[in-house]
């Protein structure tokens, strides 16, 4: 993105169109970030005018798929923040292991890297059989990728390092088969996942969970929307359930935060 190709008014016009024509509400997303994504896409796809861009987004269903995929951030990795996964492995999941059945929601799962990481830890704790991971995202095309469990092989080295740092016990390569430039993860992992679209802005609670993971999603929302989503999570979390956020996200300024207890220095809170 160079300079100021799309101005604030145009961003608002476009987002209103998107809501009206497609039912996706981005109006409460962090402005700077969504504007940057929109400007980037506009430049990337070589539109000659804002009018043309606007018309295409509004009327071309196929293009809107791309729009949705590109203006939401889908960057993720396996075992991101190893210390977080260490806390899950050593503390959170063993506690949940005392339950007869474990329901986990990965909200905003993107291409699934966190869901697969979680499944690997559950497997190593012999808890995968009694667990179910609901992995949801606003964006149907990333869910298609997540379902396949195929990730670029060149990322696997750093994922493997993260895995070992997080207390991983095995040779990471036992979890996938490599084929040319791709790594396909073991289907016993995805066998315990349910993938579905869910929009944190407009959809309701659909189940009760013992653990909700929503990492690096809320940074793209403004404060009011963050609080609405916390309420949605609160409605979807059992008592004594856990909510896990990204390394720079916090429950602190939410009015009901007092009903949650933070787990040491990790971005994990337990519902009291």
């Amino acid at each position: 993105m160079i300079g100021d190709v799309i101005d604030n008014e145009q961003v608002e016009t476009l987002l209103n169109d998107v809501l009206e024509a497609h039912g996706y509400d981005f109006l409460e997303y962090s402005h700077a970030s969504i504007k940057r994504r929109i400007s980037r896409l506009y430049a990337l796809d070589n539109f000659v005018s804002f009018a043309e861009f606007r018309y295409t987004v509004k009327t071309d269903k196929q293009y809107f798929k791309r729009f949705l995929e590109e203006i939401t951030v889908n960057v993720t990795e396996m075992f991101r923040d190893p210390s977080f996964y260490k806390a899950l492995r050593n503390e959170i999941l063993p506690t949940l292991g005392t339950y007869p059945f474990i329901r986990i929601w990965v909200a905003g799962c993107s291409t699934g890297e966190e869901a697969y990481s979680l499944a690997i830890v559950l497997k190593e704790l012999s808890l995968l059989n009694k667990s179910l991971i609901y992995a949801t995202d606003i964006n149907p095309s990333v869910l298609e990728k997540a379902k396949k469990g195929i990730f670029p092989l060149n990322y696997l080295k750093s994922y493997s390092e993260n895995y070992l740092q997080s207390g991983g016990l095995k040779d990471f390569s036992t979890y996938y088969s490599a084929n040319y430039s791709l790594a396909k993860f073991d289907e016993t992992l995805s066998g315990k996942m349910i993938f579905s679209t869910h929009n944190l802005v407009s959809d309701h609670s659909f189940n009760e969970f013992q653990l909700i993971l929503c990492r690096n999603v809320l940074i793209y929302f403004d404060k009011d929307l963050q609080h609405k989503v916390f309420q949605l999570f609160d409605n979807s979390l059992e008592q004594l359930g856990y909510l896990a956020l990204g390394s720079k996200e916090s429950l602190d300024f939410w009015p009901k935060a007092k009903q949650y207890k933070r787990i040491r220095t990790e971005k994990i809170w337990r519902k009291l």
Binding site: N8, S30, H31, A32, S33, R37, V73, N216, G246
Partner: peptide, 10 residues
Amino acid sequence: HNKTFSLDYS
């Protein structure tokens, strides 16, 4: 614009 920071993991 409201003079706050946003973080972005893109």
